[in-house]
Amino acid sequence: MDMLPENLQTLLTNPTITYLKSHTQETLTTHLSGIRETYIQPYIIAPLSSLLASTSTSAMPDLMQLLILALVLFISLKVLDYARRVIMFWVMLAFRLVFWGSVLGLGFYVYRVGVENAGEGFGARAAAGNGGAGSRGGSGWGGAGTGARGAKKGYNRW
């Protein structure tokens, strides 16, 4: 205790701290011994000791068998990891092919019909999803023939 600072020495030599340390240790020992007698002894220690007593020393596995068992376990885990990696590779490849195929298909569609017509098609679909007010010429932002810009195609360009 000589190595501790003075304020910690006085705190640790306080009678309240000393009482709490001794009382806590006694209470903890009582509770742990109760747990040991109630659960650990009858359910863990007794079955293990009877199992070890029933087997003879020649039936116990030796070190070589344990090493072989550990090696088999290690190799099987490596094989399972390899199988997981192979499966994940093919799944990710399929997702990438679908994604890039859709991007190329969308690009080919835009190339075939033109940027303006593709914009019209997507705009008409968006307007149909919103009630169609913009492309049918009703009470939207500009129907067919409204203004100089809307007179050509029937929609407003911004």
Rank of each mutant, 00 (worst) to 15 (best):
116 E>A: 07
151 A>N: 12
147 G>S: 09
158 W>S: 10
143 G>W: 01
65 Q>C: 05
41 Q>L: 13
29 T>W: 03
129 G>L: 14
41 Q>Y: 04
128 A>N: 14
140 G>M: 06
18 T>A: 09
72 V>C: 06
21 K>Q: 13
71 L>F: 10
83 A>Q: 13
14 N>R: 01
68 I>K: 14
139 S>E: 10
37 E>G: 08
137 G>Q: 02
47 P>I: 03
82 Y>I: 10
125 R>Q: 09
108 F>H: 08
109 Y>L: 12
95 F>L: 14
142 G>P: 00
24 T>L: 15
84 R>V: 05
74 F>G: 08
101 G>P: 01
105 G>R: 07
121 G>D: 09
15 P>L: 04
101 G>R: 09
130 N>V: 01
134 G>Y: 00
9 Q>L: 07
125 R>Y: 06
148 A>C: 01
4 L>S: 02
83 A>Y: 05
134 G>N: 12
18 T>N: 02
88 M>I: 12
39 Y>R: 06
66 L>Q: 08
33 S>G: 03
8 L>G: 00
70 A>L: 11
63 L>D: 03
114 G>T: 12
129 G>E: 02
86 V>G: 01
2 D>T: 07
156 N>S: 10
34 G>V: 02
133 A>R: 06
68 I>R: 11
134 G>V: 00
19 Y>E: 13
125 R>A: 15
62 D>M: 02
44 I>E: 08
56 S>Y: 06
153 K>W: 03
55 T>A: 06
66 L>V: 09
66 L>G: 09
12 L>H: 01
44 I>D: 05
38 T>H: 07
47 P>Y: 04
158 W>I: 11
20 L>M: 14
28 L>P: 00
149 R>L: 10
111 Y>R: 15
32 L>Y: 11
99 F>Y: 15
120 E>C: 03
51 L>C: 07
67 L>G: 08
99 F>Q: 13
93 L>V: 07
11 L>P: 00
61 P>H: 05
136 R>T: 08
132 G>N: 01
142 G>C: 13
27 T>H: 04
49 S>E: 15
50 S>F: 03
5 P>H: 06
134 G>S: 13
104 L>K: 12
108 F>A: 15
116 E>M: 14
92 M>E: 09
25 Q>T: 14
91 V>S: 07
73 L>A: 12
123 G>S: 12
64 M>R: 14
158 W>H: 09
77 L>W: 09
120 E>T: 02
3 M>P: 00
7 N>P: 01
155 Y>E: 00
109 Y>D: 08
143 G>P: 01
8 L>F: 03
154 G>Y: 01
104 L>I: 15
27 T>N: 04
142 G>F: 01
142 G>T: 01
124 A>R: 06
43 Y>Q: 14
84 R>S: 11
5 P>Y: 02
